[in-house]
Design a binder for these strands. Structure first.
Lengths: 199, 199
DNA sequence: GTCTATATTGCGATAGAC
DNA sequence: GTCTATCGCAATATAGAC
């Protein structure tokens, strides 16, 4: 085969690891999915574990690209609107990402730690800055606790995607009119109205 | 050993499965943790898989106990306050539960499906009823979409626990003043104020 | 770079003594 | 009910031909 065996192995591993986790995927299954030989995994990546690491590192880059924006000049409410839109685009373009994050919640790998330490503090700082400016400008309630508010917001934005597999099982068939847009739009409405300073 | 080898195996399995998932735990490790012989797992439960099923079924009972309450007579806002309090107590008494739920988000097992189908629709119905009554009573905004609002609320309540392992890694050291109570109290404030009908 | 064939390891399950 | 010993299997990793 051609040289892009490496890329096809990485893509196949991303798909299979996302769906079934590290342990439920054999290197033979990955090679089969990539239509390559399983020995090439050792050849290109060293081991199955190092292949997984390569997958995680590739996800980091995708996530980082969404955090290069400078939020500090925007209206505080606009920061959350932009963040919601960015998350929507991110999940849409990269459906595997949240499956990895979700799985790593339970059993964090060393390389997931790298992801967390590189990416999350920047996002946290941007959102904390927006909240603080909003309080100073009299937009948000002055008794707001920054850290809980950010975790809350992350929960609102991410839980929808995190639990997507469950919706139909829990609630029954999808309803055509209640989709991603409705969800995120209402998340913004409720969160921003909930933050507002009262009279 | 005594007859309670069975119980000790179940407890050990719960702990180890919660921490590391099904595949990363060997029956030998479980037996070692329980200070029992690994052959007793087959004897009492039939197989490793059936032991896992027994663990999941045991978690269901804990969850079901929190849903026997009749919410239909309460003030709609009070329903969410009670639900938040119940979740807090549930997670506190049973820290392993969310680890299972989180892991099953990614790769749902057959027995997790049973849990979902038994428990979740009741909770969903109770919350949907509260929202609908709140709209009828003029408390909540009339344009509220029920299903997105419930997913939103579940995200606010659960994400804190779901992501607890990550907080210190993401944000730095714990701050003593920002704890569970602060978080849930603010979740309720923001959510309920966000639902309110304007003017 | 790619393949086949195999060395090695660790697991789940069970047979059978006590 | 509990133990030891072991069978059979599947998976990773690698040696070596091409």
């Amino acid at each position: 085969m051609e040289q892009d065996n490496r890329e096809r192995l990485l893509a196949a591993a991303t798909k299979l690891f996302a769906d079934s986790g590290f342990d439920n995927v054999s290197i033979r299954a990955i090679a089969s999915e990539a239509q390559a030989n399983s020995a090439l995994i050792s050849y290109y990546f060293g081991s199955k574990q190092q292949l997984y690491d390569a997958v995680i590192l590739h996800q980091i880059k995708t996530l980082e690209a969404f955090l290069s924006e400078d939020f500090s000049v925007l209206d505080p409410r606009e920061v959350f609107r932009r963040h919601a839109a960015a998350m929507q685009q991110l999940h849409h373009e990269n459906p595997a990402l949240l499956k990895f994050i979700c799985r790593e919640f339970g059993t964090p790998s060393e390389h997931f730690n790298i992801l967390i330490k590189k990416v999350a503090p920047r996002l946290y700082a941007a959102l904390a800055d927006a909240l603080q400016r909003g309080i100073q400008q009299g937009l948000f309630r002055p008794d707001l606790r920054i850290r809980p508010a950010i975790i809350l917001w992350m929960g609102m934005v991410n839980f929808y995607y995190l639990s997507q597999n469950l919706h139909s099982r829990v609630i029954g068939q999808e309803q055509a009119d209640e989709h991603e847009d409705t969800y995120l739009q209402q998340a913004l409405q409720i969160f921003l109205q909930g933050l507002e300073r009262r009279n």
